[in-house]
């Protein structure tokens, strides 16, 4: 194994797959919470909507940049896979993009266009967030189904699209628990109690379907001694779910302690689920068809990107942290004349 990883044809694609995985994961958590806030929009009144927007306003743009980074890494590091995956998912990708366009501009127009249009823009913000979340869930499902379009795979993808959207609403609600107080925070707690089911069902559906659809994945999980070594993944997930469950029953608390717990544990769940999926699909980047080593760009191209990434990514992490630090604390209410 070590000698293999001394070969740039091996360690470079692996490194880039890891980087891409991190980018996707960061995207899912970060844009997950602001998409989730959008999904929850119809449940809030007008004043609450303004506060919800205020809680994500300074962040959403940078959050979406992680999607560009993830898709960019797929594009530059695994060009063959990029083409195959995106042409197979042509329509859901277009739907997601239109969703992202609509909700992205709604941030601006809901306050800058004439006030009589504001409620229309609120609906567009909701609709765009829904469309983006649903199509992402759909693509997740199709990917797990090996990018084959049949009635069964589409049915499964429709299920995951609903589960992921509800899951986003959970992480969005968990974000609002941190960033708001008073009545809105109480509402957010009840939204999170509903949203958690999206995560439970989504994780369950993926865990059941992946090994059933592929004998290879089944063997990777359910043969000795892997089954023992992998046991911490589902056990930790159950533990995190239990913590969220208990915490949500006790929130909102008097001094706002533990308001961060649902978000942190939710992030933990996304990470565990992602690790599980990564383990299932490795070494394939296009399920069962193309490994990441076959799809990788030339080492010369990868090494020059890696040089920049190693230098720049910590800086990005640093100033992103700065932004979250500056806008820490409860989201202040917005006041438009």
């Amino acid at each position: 194994m070590m000698t293999l990883f001394g070969d740039p044809q091996v360690w470079l694609p692996f490194t880039f797959a890891t980087l891409m995985g991190i980018a996707i994961l960061v995207y899912v958590v970060l844009d997950g919470f602001d998409l989730g806030v959008g999904v929850l929009f119809p449940f809030a009144d007008d004043r609450e909507k303004d506060r919800m927007i205020a809680s994500i306003g300074p962040f959403w743009d940078a959050n979406e940049t992680w999607l560009v980074l993830a898709i960019g890494l797929l594009l530059v590091a695994f060009p063959a896979a990029h083409g195959t995956i995106l042409t197979a998912l042509y329509l859901p990708v277009a739907a997601m993009l239109i969703g992202l366009i609509l909700r992205g501009v709604a941030f601006e127009y809901r306050v800058k266009a004439p006030p009589k249009w504001k409620s229309t823009w609120n609906w567009i913000f909701w609709g765009g967030s829904m469309l983006a979340a649903l199509s992402q869930g759909f693509m997740l499902g199709m990917y797990i189904m090996g990018l084959e379009w049949t009635i069964w795979t589409v049915g499964f993808a429709l299920l995951t699209s609903v589960f992921l959207t509800v899951g986003y609403s959970f992480i969005g609600a968990a974000w609002l628990i941190i960033k708001t107080d008073g009545l809105l925070q109480e509402k957010a707690v009840s939204w999170a109690r509903g949203g958690i089911w999206g995560l439970v069902l989504g994780l369950g559906a993926i865990s059941l379907a992946s090994p059933l659809i592929s004998a290879r994945i089944f063997d990777k999980w359910f043969s000795m001694p892997q089954v023992l070594m992998l046991a911490p993944l589902p056990l930790l997930s159950l533990g995190l779910l239990a913590i969220i469950w208990v915490t949500l029953r006790r929130l909102p608390s008097a001094n706002d302690s533990r308001a961060w717990v649902p978000f942190a544990c939710g992030t933990g769940l996304f990470i565990l689920a992602f690790c599980g999926m990564a383990y299932s699909f490795y070494p394939y980047v296009v399920p069962e068809k193309l490994t990441l080593y076959e799809a990788a760009s030339a080492p010369e191209a990868l090494i020059i990107i890696l040089a920049g990434t190693v230098f720049v990514l910590p800086m990005i992490a640093l100033y992103t942290t700065l932004a979250y630090y500056i806008f820490r604390g409860k989201a202040t209410e917005l006041s438009y004349e």
């Binding site: 979406e64 940049t65 530059v76 060009p79 760009s297 990107i305 920049g308 990434t309 720049v312 806008f327």
Partner: peptide
Amino acid sequence: METVGNIAGPLLAYEVLTAFFLEAVFLGI
């Protein structure tokens, strides 16, 4: 990308890394 990805890829990657995040994060501030 299949033909010129080895050239276009790094240039696009550098755009995302050195420009997009910088703009997006500091725009919020």
